[in-house]
Design a protein around this nucleic acid. Structure first.
Length: 385
DNA sequence: CGATCCCGCCAGGAT
DNA sequence: ATCCTGGCGGGATCG
């Protein structure tokens, strides 16, 4: 008697598309949603990685992915080995603010500097060599004996240098430190790694970007879209608009309790890959959570005009003068002072990245504007009656 | 097909 | 050494 349970534990969901392995049900984003549904409630204070892994029915590796990006946004902080402290969504505004200040101050430094892009800029093809210092940014707490006495500061942690967490923060800075509302995938990749040549590196980075985007999406900080050309995929910054509604699927709950009883209270849930295995992972659930599609805090501009890879918010960039400060959604939901700070701050696009971004803005804006004035005064919401 | 991105090997680091 | 972390990229899926 085979102990293999039917391959379809869940009752008929929407259109039972048969068995078959489905990636969507195991996506990082979904996992993240479940993770949040599980821990985003009061009473939660500490989160154990093992606990999370077993409750969600996944290997630890996946938990690391989620936790790393959540930590980048302040929702979590590492407390000790194997355990994190839950901070909640309310910690997001502050984290964003910090990223914003950080990014503005240091302007990202030189990691992704040269590698130039078009735009007027010398240094056409520089080698830039490979070793890039990039000492870990601040943000970290005091470290005993700052600066490792190692005779190799530039390689102590190239690890951190390529970490998911750092990549996440830089990705977010792209939005928070500029007027960009939408950034295409490849532009983001290019800007972030500064290694546009070398398909291999790029590919890997893009994979990571997808990972990040998935969890950020599940938190509704961003949304996946694509450029107007509908050619290139892109990400739209939504900012923090309150906590999305996480619905913990009943499936998970069931699975969870079941699993608990089953034993495996701690440590590994390794079942060993075995291809047809479907261990606990099958218990993943899928929920809709399509809510928060977007309220109507959007001004008139909505998200219609996009260009190559960038898009600005509701305001139009003033021609070579003062730029309205970037502001997050100004929905008067709660009083977050992110805006406050930002509105007083003037973006100093003195670095490559921002400069490049602005160049794109202008270009994009110009074409958009001309198009707008030429065609319709306002696309508006013309509903076919 | 190309865009997405899951899976888990395995290298470094902490204990 | 054992266990925790988490880069990394092969290759399966999706659109």
């Amino acid at each position: 008697m085979s102990d293999l349970p039917p391959e379809n534990p869940n009752l008929t969901l929407t259109s039972s598309l048969h068995h078959s392995y489905s990636r969507k049900q195991k996506s990082l984003g979904l996992l993240c949603t479940n993770f949040l549904a599980l821990y985003n409630r009061h009473g939660i204070e500490t989160i154990g990685l093992d606990d999370a892994a077993s409750k969600l029915g996944v290997e630890r590796r996946r938990i690391y992915d989620i936790v790393n990006v959540l930590e980048s946004v302040g929702v979590l902080t590492k407390r000790a080995k194997n355990q994190y402290t839950w901070k909640g969504f309310s910690a997001i505004p502050a984290a964003l603010k910090e990223l914003q200040e950080e990014g503005a101050k240091d302007t990202f430094h030189r990691f992704y500097t040269n590698e130039n892009v078009k735009v007027s800029d010398d240094e056409d093809d520089e080698e830039v060599s490979s070793s890039q210092p990039l000492s870990s940014c601040q943000t970290d707490t005091s470290k005993p004996g700052s600066l490792p006495q190692s005779s190799d500061p530039s390689k102590i942690d190239n690890r951190r240098e390529k970490s998911l967490g750092l990549l996440t923060q830089n990705f977010i800075k792209l939005f928070v430190c500029s007027e960009a509302r939408i950034i295409s995938l490849d532009e983001a990749a290019k800007l972030l790694l500064g290694d546009a040549h070398n398909t291999s590196i790029m590919r890997t980075k893009v994979r990571r970007l997808y990972d990040i985007a998935n969890v950020l999406s599940s938190m509704n900080l961003i949304e996946k879209t694509h450029s107007l050309d509908s050619r290139k995929p892109a990400f739209k910054w939504l900012g923090y608009n309150g906590e999305p509604t996480f619905t913990l699927s009943s499936d998970l709950m069931q699975a969870e309790s079941k699993k608990r009883v089953f034993g495996t209270d701690l440590t590994n849930v390794s079942v060993k890959r075995s291809r047809t295995h479907e261990n606990a992972t099958e218990r993943r659930i899928k929920m809709k959570q399509h809510a928060i599609a977007d309220s109507s805090y959007n001004q008139s501009s909505d998200d219609a005009h996009e260009s190559r890879g960038y898009e600005f918010g509701p305001f139009a960039p003033a021609a070579g003068g003062t730029y309205p400060a970037a502001r997050l959604e100004d929905n008067s939901k709660r009083a977050f002072d992110v805006e406050n700070l930002v509105s007083d701050y003037r973006p100093s696009y003195q670095n490559q990245v921002l400069k490049d971004l602005f160049a794109h803005y202008m270009d994009a804006w110009k074409s958009w504007y001309s198009e707008l004035t030429q065609n319709n005064p306002l696309p508006d919401t013309s509903k076919r009656h």
